[in-house]
């Protein structure tokens, strides 16, 4: 709905971000507004890759994000680890614990710095999202968090414990800084799906199944009918996540939506290979990307 108006003002209001921790005015020339970067990522079926920041180290995360992008990921979600990730299954829970228990721990600030390096030093152009729980964002300060995120080149934020009804306290800071606050829709959303979709920005994260994140052998939700319902109220792209790990699942889900989100399968490769997951990630993501239907 007001989505395009927000984009229009994002670059300008972004320059008022000086209230943020160490944030400098964001250059508005020669940069694609963040939400446009997301729209570009969805011009064909999108493959969204998730990994946990700082697992096993920040250096590995930086290299892995580049590998995921080179292998064809349209957007990368970097998880800011949280002590109590209630929407995650064991694979991502364990990754969060590893990232937090490393010598220095992994903080939001370290991951902002990582995104800055990916943008400024590595020239990464695909959209980047951060995924975390509300408490670390609240603790950082909403305005400060989004100003810093915008400043380093973050396009979107996903917060699994911030449902639509509680968006109001976070949205002004997100919009003022031109960072998309991603809405989630679940198989249980029923009548609320339309309301959520009508207010969505960036992309819609459609949760494929009940339960927490993690690899599933089959997904039984009727994704197509939920997507149809969303389509009646918005053109914001829809990406399906939770449980997707195989090329066949990616193909089926992407055929019914605009993209797929894969987390636990990638995080598991990192868990198994530690700092040596480069080849495994490249092979896996290439295979998944080539399974997506061509438009």
């Amino acid at each position: 709905m007001v989505y395009n108006e927000t984009v229009g003002s994002a670059g300008v209001t972004g320059t008022t971000a000086s209230a943020g921790k160490g944030a400098s005015p964001r250059p508005i020339e020669n940069t694609t507004p963040p939400i446009d970067r997301i729209a570009q990522a969805f011009q064909s079926k999108a493959f969204i890759a998730f990994l946990t920041g700082g697992d096993p180290t920040l250096e590995d995360t930086r290299r892995y994000v580049k590998i995921l992008a080179e292998a064809g990921a349209s957007l990368v979600e970097i998880g800011i680890p949280f002590s109590d990730p209630i929407a995650e299954g064991p694979v991502i829970q364990e990754a969060s614990a590893r990232a937090l228990s490393s010598a220095t721990g992994t903080t939001p600030e370290m991951l902002f710095e990582l995104v800055r390096a990916l943008r400024e030093e590595d020239g990464l152009t695909i959209p980047l999202a951060l995924m975390t729980y509300l408490n670390p964002v609240h603790h950082y300060g909403y305005e400060e968090f989004f100003a810093r995120a915008a400043d380093v080149g973050v396009d979107a934020l996903i917060v699994p414990d911030l449902p639509f009804e509680e968006h109001a306290e976070v949205l002004p800071a997100a919009q003022a800084n031109g960072v998309a606050l991603i809405s989630m829709i679940a198989p249980t959303s029923s009548s609320r799906a339309r309301k959520i979709a009508a207010n969505a920005q960036g992309f819609i994260y459609l949760v494929s199944s009940l339960g927490v994140t993690g690899v599933r052998s089959e997904i039984t939700t009727d994704i197509g009918s939920i997507v149809d319902e969303i389509r009646q109220v918005t053109d914001v792209p829809v990406a399906v996540g939770f449980g997707i790990s195989t090329p066949a699942q990616a193909a089926t889900m992407a055929a019914q939506a605009d993209g797929v989100i894969v987390g636990s399968a990638i995080v598991r490769l990192i868990a198994e290979n530690g700092s040596h997951a480069d080849d495994a990630l490249r092979t896996y993501v290439s295979e998944m990307v080539s399974a997506l239907p061509q438009e």
Binding site: P163, E165, E166, A186, P187, T188, S189, S191, G211
Partner: peptide, 12 residues
């Protein structure tokens, strides 16, 4: 207070 929970539980 409030209701800061995953979307899957909101209708419930």
């Amino acid at each position: 207070g409030g209701q800061y929970i995953p979307e899957t539980l909101m209708n419930e």
